[in-house]
Each structure stands twice: as C-alpha cells, then as structure tokens.
Nucleic acid binder design. Structure first.
Length: 647
RNA sequence: GCCGACGUAGCUCAGGGGUAGAGCGUUUCCUUGGUAAGGAAGAGGUCGUGGGUUCAAUUCCCAUCGUUGGCUCCA
C-alpha cells in the first residue's frame, strides 16, 4: 500500500498509509487522543474521523472535544439522534432539517401529534436509550437518483425536496445510525455514545423553509455538551439570563407595566421608567442641540392622504392601526414621523444657505405589530422614537451621514456598549418597483455614497443585500444585550425618493430648485426598545445619572429623622433623586431593601453623623465607604451625575 | 398572523369537582437599632373573561382575551 506524507498542526511530518483515517492517526499518537477525537480537518475541511485521507502533503488536524468545531459536530449529531428518536417513537413523522446553532440545535419535523413538554420528556428518554446503545454512525455516498429514490420510498418528502435543490456537481451524502438514515453533509461523531450530556429545551412552530405560506412544522430545540459541567453551566446561564430579563427587572424595579385594559403592546411608564426616559431625552436634546438640530413637534393623528403620498400606506398598511373616520375623511395614528417632518421642511421656503436642515423630535408612533411578535418592551405597538430627519444637498451628504454615525459611537461610549455591528442594507434588483422604489441608478449612486462615507469615516460595516428600506439604503445598528439577545437598536436611512414625492425643494446658488437628500436617523432607537436594552445591559444597575432612585438616606433610628430630612432637602435642591427609608426597621433590613432596589448610594445617618454634619457612605457593589462630610459628598454626587459617569 | 405552553393575593408560586393556600410585600402595634431580613396581629382573591357539562366548576370541556417559547415580519 502506498504511503503518503501529511503535516500536523505543529508542522511535524508524518507518513501514513494512503486511505488511513483521522481515527487511525489519533490512535497512532495515543489512545487518549483517540477517545477525545471527534472529527478531523483535512486541508481546512472538516471530515469524519473515519474518512480516509488520500491527499499527499495534506494538513491534518484532529478535532478533539475541546475545540468549538467539535461542539458544532456534537450538536449536529445530537440533532440526528433527536430525529432518530422521533422516527422510533412516531414512525410516520417526516423529518425536515436539523442544523446546529451556536450552543444548541433544532430539528423540524412534520408529525400529527403535538409536541408538548410530556412528549419532549419521552423523546429525550428515547435519545438517552439510543445514545447508550453506542450505535455506529456511518457515512454513505449516494448518487442523486439513489438518494431521491431512497428518501421518496421512505416518504421523506422534505428530504426529497432538499435533494432536488442540491447542485448537480455536489456529492450527496447521508449518515446512518442503526435503521435511521438522514441526508447530511456531515461530519458527525463516530457513534451515538459520544453524545452523553444533552437536554431538550423547548418546542415551537416553524414554517417549512421559513416561509409563511408553507406548512408549519414542529421544531424541537435541544443542547448537548461534552461534559456534565458544560451542560450545567449552559443551563445555569439560561437561568442567569432570566434574572436579567428586562421584563422581570422592569417589573421588580417598577419601570413599566402592561395592563389588559389598556391593550397589548401599549406600555405604561411608571415613575421610575419615566425618570429614565427623561434622562435619555435630556441627553438626546443636549447632543442634538450641539450638533445643530432644531426641535419640532407633530400631531399623533393624520389624514390618510399624507401616507398615500409618502408611500407608507402602500408598503405598510397592514402594520398600521386601521383608519378612523373623522367627518368623512380617513385619519390614521401616525406610524412614523417622516412625512410630518417633510411638511415642516416645506412649510418655510428654503435656500441652499439653510441647508442642511436637521429636524428632531422624540415622536410618538403607533404600529400595529402582529400579536405574536409583541415582546416585552422590545417589540411594542406604541413607541417614542429618537427621530430626526436631515435634509441636505448632495455635497453635504457624506459629511452629514458620517456625523450621524459618529453620534452613534458617542452614545455607545456613554452607555458602554462595546459589542455592536453596523449593517449596510442594500436593495436587490429583483425587488425594484416592488419592495423598493424603482430608480435603479439612484439606488446605486446613494449606496455608493453611503459606502464611501463609511470607509472614509473608518467605520467597520457589513453589507447586506435585500434589506434596504423602500426609499433607500440604510445602516442598521445591531447590538447584543448582556443576555445575548440581538436586535436592531438604531437605524440610519437614506431617502432619495420621498422628498421628491413631497416636492421638497431648496433654491441653489443659481436660484434653481433642487431636491434635497434626506437622512432618517434614530441613534437611540425608541425609548421602549432602548430602555429594554439598557435594563438588560446594566442588569438593572443603572449608572447614577440614569438611576431612577439615586440616593437613599437610612436613619439609624427615628431620632435622626430630622437630620435625614435636612439632608434630603439639601440634595433635592441640587436635583438629586433622594428618598428616606423612615421605617422602624434595623439597619440590616434597610440596607438589604436598598440593595434589592438597586439604589446606587446609601447614606447612613445616626448620632455621630448628626453631630458633625456627615454621613456614612455605602455604595452598591462597593460596600461601606466610611464617614463623609456632607459638604464634600454632595458636589461629588453632582459631578458624577453631570458627567454621566458609568461608575 | 401561525404552532406550542401558561393565566390562582401587589410579587413569586403551590393546590385541586363541595368554606382558597404559602413565602415575600402591604397595614397597625411593639421594638429605636451602626452596614444584606427584629417581633406580633390584621387586611387582601368572582382562581383572566364568557359559555357549556354537573346537584355543585377556580378545578372538566369549548370559546375568547392576555402573557410567553419559537416561526414569519419590522418604515
């Protein structure tokens, strides 16, 4: 048999028989390595441990259970195990797809019984049984026809559909374990015994191929790990995430509430939440004022004609609240502020000397989001947007666009948002005239302008075709909350279409009328989503300037209530949000409650403090900081608030 | 909107065809204290809503509303 030469990651050269496998290689190095090996990587391609290696001078790497790639293989194999269990329990079930995700996997199945928690338990039990049997997982390669015939015969219609979509030049492979076979590219763990620590997490509905018009399948989510500790850690993290969930904290910290009689997706802002809102608005107003924005205000209610003109009725009527008839004219609650701002632009004639015009408003909008997509504060039906529209000349565009992007970065720094991604959403040609306004050359031109602006501004971004707004390309800013939830926080859109529809013009240097470009921007998104995000981002521990309750005075006993009142007034005079815990409780209890309420500063006042006009300072997360003179402490607190320190 | 789960006191949750339960919170009283829970007593619920089955429904069935895990969508 011919020998070939392969290279290991540490650059050592090894001679092996042609056709020997990653498994053979592992065994030749050591039994322990073999046991830990899950798959192999040959010239960068992940393959099964038992795949023969035929390439001379190949770079071969063994993927052990320590590597993230191995985890993906494990998850994928677990999905197969899940499918196998399902086929054993419900032989008539049809299986669709079952990929690995970041730390979990799912399998979509078509079965006439509904998968509830009880069924999940049953399925998990079956999986354990199959794992214990340590069934060999083997790869088979099939011709297109063989594959089609095989899966057709089994009644696996979804697989047949997938096979038909596989490119002709591609090899079709499947994996078997016992009687079970699944179409799959692989690689997989060598046997089911490798899948030891796993758990099914939930079931959900999912449309076949993610298309609403297709049949809804049942999706089962699960997770799997190489060690018991990893599995437990994963489950603990899930629990921890629940504790940081803005819906839980929002209730506990009395930030917002929903009420059945008010309506779904219509949040009520409690006093604590309103404090946060107003602090955010102050920040935005301050920032926008410095950046040359003018503030405007617009009504919540508007005639349908306006939205016909803007094109919004055309594109979004389904997600607008239905019209109401007022004296025979149809009115809508406004789903966005742009048309009004356009009208404000048009209300006073503009010259090139006025440009750019930047109109800002924390505008209230209402959108009829489908009931199933409401989600705490993150997805609501009434919202206030950190909105503004910038009308500029083409020459000013890049600069204005960049200034907006930099404003994002300025805010991110204040809030300590480190993980974010700018996504440049572009049009796609097929949807011109449908999803998108039909001005091909304008699309290309503005997209290029935006791209250049970003590159010149040194702002990293990703391009995503087919995600633009109907009137122009946009930048979506994705953020991840502390519990891993991803969403679009802010958006920055170019509009080359609607200003024309509104006949917006300015007179240029030659006294000729020109149509301005419009930038829609909302760096802080909506109050609802942004505060939902901030709650999770800070875990309810807001920096002092945002904390609804900044300071609490804890008198040792009611003998010192008078002193506490004096303290309180001198703080109130300085706009510090302060309260007194006047209950006849012991210090331990008062501190505990203040901690649970996540109040950043606790001031303990007893006899000593009363005598020398001081307080004993305790800060959340820092504990007892000892005695402080009131005259020194108050200016420090004011400074911390004023500079919006993150603590 | 679709598929699944859930809805009992202000909160977290237990219960179950026949006066409705706990812990925390709240109120009152006692206690007057030094860095994460002092003590006692009391108040508080048409068991989400509407129908049906039953001698009897908070419990079983149906519908509806709301929340929720996902899917789809997001100007």
């Amino acid at each position: 048999m011919k020998e070939i030469q392969i290279k290991l990651p540490d650059n050592t050269i090894k001679h092996v028989e042609q056709g020997s496998t990653g498994g053979d290689l592992a065994r030749s190095i050591g039994e322990g390595l073999f046991r830990a090996s899950i798959a192999a990587k040959v010239d960068g391609n992940l393959v099964d441990l038992e795949s023969p290696i035929d390439i001379e001078n190949a770079n071969v790497e063994l993927i052990t259970n320590k590597s993230p790639e191995a985890h993906e293989v494990l998850l994928h194999s677990s999905a197969h195990l899940l499918a196998q269990a399902i086929k054993e329990l419900y032989p008539h079930a049809k299986i669709a797809i079952g990929p690995a995700l970041a730390d979990r996997y799912y399998y979509d199945i078509d079965v006439d019984i509904s998968i509830n928690d009880k069924e999940l338990e049953k399925i998990e039990g079956k999986m354990k049984e199959l794992a214990k049997q340590n069934i060999q997982v083997e790869r088979v390669e099939l011709s297109r026809n063989e594959a089609l015939e095989k899966f057709k015969k089994m009644g696996e219609d979804y697989k047949v559909e997938i096979i038909s979509d596989i490119a002709v030049e591609e090899t079709i492979s499947a994996y078997t374990q016992g009687d079970f076979i699944d179409l799959c590219r692989g690689p997989h763990v060598p046997s089911t015994g490798k899948i030891k620590y796993f758990k099914l997490l939930s079931s959900a509905g999912a449309y076949w191929r993610g298309d609403e018009s297709n049949k809804m399948l049942q999706r089962i989510y699960g997770t799997a790990w190489f060690t018991k500790e990893d599995l437990n850690q994963f489950l603990i993290n899930l629990e921890e995430a629940k504790k940081r969930d803005h819906r839980k904290l929002g209730k506990e910290l009395e930030i917002y509430a929903f009420d059945d009689e008010v309506g779904p997706g219509l949040p009520l802002w409690l006093p604590n939440g309103t404090v946060i809102i107003e602090e955010l608005e102050n920040l935005a107003k301050e920032t926008e004022l410095k950046a040359g924005y003018s503030r405007v205000r617009t009504p919540h209610l508007t005639k349908g004609d306006l939205y016909e003109k803007s094109g919004h009725l055309d594109h979004y009527e389904d997600s607008m609240y239905p019209s109401m008839d007022v004296d025979g004219t149809s009115y809508y609650v406004k789903p966005m502020n742009c048309p009004h701002h356009h009208k404000i632009f048009a209300a006073v004639p503009k010259s090139y000397r006025d440009m750019p015009v930047r109109l800002a408003e924390y505008g209230t909008c209402y959108r009829y989001e489908k009931s199933g997509q409401l989600f705490g504060l993150m997805r609501v039906r009434s919202m206030q947007m950190n909105d503004a529209h910038i009308y500029c000349t083409e020459d000013q565009f890049k600069d204005e666009f960049l200034k907006v992007c930099n404003m994002y970065l300025y805010y991110f720094d204040i809030f300590g948002i480190e993980k974010y991604q700018m996504r440049l959403s572009l049009h796609d040609k097929e949807n011109l005239g449908k999803k998108y306004v039909d001005h091909p050359e304008l699309w290309i031109k503005t997209e290029q302008l935006v791209r250049e602006a970003l590159v010149e501004g040194n702002i990293p971004f990703e391009e995503i075709p087919g995600e633009a707004a109907f009137y122009g390309p946009k930048i979506d800013v994705q953020v991840w909350s502390a519990i891993g939830r991803e969403f679009t926080l802010a958006t920055n859109q170019v509009d080359f279409a609607v200003p024309k529809r509104f006949d917006l013009v300015y007179n240029d240097e030659n006294n000729k009328e020109q149509t301005p470009l419009c930038i829609h921007r909302a760096p802080l998104g909506t109050h609802e989503r942004f505060i939902g995000f901030l709650i999770e981002h800070f875990g309810g521990d807001f920096p002092l300037w945002l904390a609804p309750r900044q300071v609490i005075i804890l008198p040792i006993s009611d003998k010192y209530l008078g002193y506490a009142e004096n303290l309180k007034s001198s703080m109130l005079e300085n706009n510090i949000r302060v309260s007194i815990d006047a209950r006849s409780e012991k210090m331990g209890a008062k501190i505990r409650d203040a901690e649970l309420n996540k109040i950043p500063i606790m001031l303990i006042a007893g006899e000593k403090e009363q005598n020398d006009n001081s307080v004993s300072l305790r800060r959340r997360h820092e504990g007892d900081l000892g005695a402080r003179r009131v005259d020194d402490l108050i200016p420090e607190i004011i400074e911390e608030i004023k500079t919006r320190r993150r603590s």
